[in-house]
Write a protein that binds this DNA or RNA. Sequence first.
DNA 1: GTGAAAGCGCTAACAC
DNA 2: GTGTTAGCGCTTTCAC
Lengths: 344, 344
Amino acid sequence: MTQPGRPRRSTIADVAQHAGVSTTAVSKVLRNAYGVSPAMREKVTASIKELGYRPHAAARAMRGRTFTIGVLFPDLRNPFFPDILDGIDAQIAGTEYQVIIVRGGASAKTESSAIDALVDRQVDGLLMVAPLNTRKRLEEVARILPTVVLGPHDKSAAYDSVADDDAAGVELVMEHLIGLGHRRIAHIAHGDIGLARVSTSLQTIRAETYKRVMRDHGLADEIAIATTSYTETGGYDGARELLARDARPTAIFAGADLAAFGTLAAVHEAGLSVPGDISVAGYDNTRMAGLAHVSLTSVDQDGVTLGRTVGRLLLERIEGRTTPVRFFISPSLVARLSTGPAPS
Amino acid sequence: MTQPGRPRRSTIADVAQHAGVSTTAVSKVLRNAYGVSPAMREKVTASIKELGYRPHAAARAMRGRTFTIGVLFPDLRNPFFPDILDGIDAQIAGTEYQVIIVRGGASAKTESSAIDALVDRQVDGLLMVAPLNTRKRLEEVARILPTVVLGPHDKSAAYDSVADDDAAGVELVMEHLIGLGHRRIAHIAHGDIGLARVSTSLQTIRAETYKRVMRDHGLADEIAIATTSYTETGGYDGARELLARDARPTAIFAGADLAAFGTLAAVHEAGLSVPGDISVAGYDNTRMAGLAHVSLTSVDQDGVTLGRTVGRLLLERIEGRTTPVRFFISPSLVARLSTGPAPS
DNA sequence: GTGAAAGCGCTAACAC
DNA sequence: GTGTTAGCGCTTTCAC
């Protein structure tokens, strides 16, 4: 494994020797710890620089922190996720922390081992985005290390929660469509494969709110849901299924932009026009949605702000906070050309 | 930092005690090392399971490997990247290895510290996708740990290279467009911000090949390049610039699908039709490109195969191979409805 | 304010 | 085939 000619990396001992001080002193300077004279600090800093010394994360991990924040995403295809990362990065800029990312995959099981991988690697803090695992499992992890969960509308004493107010977002879309005269409004939902956290997952909240709003408006009989996934393919398949039904919907609300894009494809393939025959709306307000030729009506939930919030909470927890915090951010509707009056 | 009530994690010593053997024995079982009797193996395995023991990556890192593969992406917005990860995952499935991902950002400098972060965390192998840093810098890293570089057409004795044959891909697009009668074909390129590896970066190869093909066909005077970035915004801005020029292009070849999507938006906003007034082509053949309402002509480079190849090479290197390997994969053209005959 | 020394969990010589 | 032991590079008491 070792490469030939591999140059030996300098250690804290090398720095200490070079600066003519003890390793303790170097360690203290490194950690900005109490009890170092300015002169000492300067000497050490100079030696560190000269030797190009960087601390070994693994060695640090044995006694202290790794200065690593682990982020778990279900996948990396949703263009909304990078926004969250931008927010986190903005928040931790200037600290020594580094973000590492892992993919949880489509099942609670693969996700669980991804979480283990992060725990085994001793991350100082953990962010789980839209996790599939049970709250029990998440709390188990949260007992081991500072944890923030983004997405599910959970409330736990063990971790912080940050979520978009999905119910409010769905209401915005639905009121918009209903205001345009639509009655046969269908929904494309994301099936929870793990089935672990059915009630509080954002996808469930979105689907349930859709149903509730339909009922509230006396449209209970018009409820039509295709349960696939929040992906292009999921949206495509779901829309094809919905379009094939007897009473064809006049509007389709996909639970995510990615699915809305697939929906647009299916509608197009069916020879129908948007929004003439069918209105289409999404959720996430991705960059793609804003492009002129797509012009998808969507719900904006400001991923960067979500990311900043999450980053801040994580740092606070790492610094010692243990009282749980819960944040909701309010989404807003961005109406574009993919939605219009219901056909008469 | 430590959470209250944090349960102490079991160690190799706990397992040894529980099984009534030495820590060495446990370690050997863990590593499938030589010299353990079946009986011993069984006892130890049982104890590991019972105690729910998992090795501490940090402690392992101090002496051996971390079973971690680091992957560096410039960003996570390009929908082509998850395909690569799928390939890597497929390849390392069944091994103990775990992939962690970091973002390099838009500059060679931020990328360089992302690389450092991975090195500091003792990953066993490193994959750099479309890196911005100089070859010198990459070789410096490759001397420290097993490295594979994906994207640039580099040749180095220190690391393995895997790349799409970008020249061939661009030729496919250009011949396609020229065959359709286009002469004023413009290109949207990605500017190398770090400027570090100008000549061999995939973006440079694509732009240079575009120019070469134009010249080869006697179209040197028609060469028109907008240098922005391989993003939606980059494509949008680039296309607006190109469309504003005196001799408006009849075709725009964007160096990446993401940029092509932005181009489509700009063309649409300008009131022009695709492909009636302007043909548009991209590169990467992302899922989005295949959707009916987008139907973007693009170059397919099979990210999953790229990922598998990269994963295999990395494992080989970790196992000890030091002779460099270089792979090219051949792209293919997927012609769709966004390209058509040049307007007469 | 400074340094000596113990020890984090694991692996790898080496002895038995 | 099995166990003892010496570190890996760092942080952290605890003397001075």
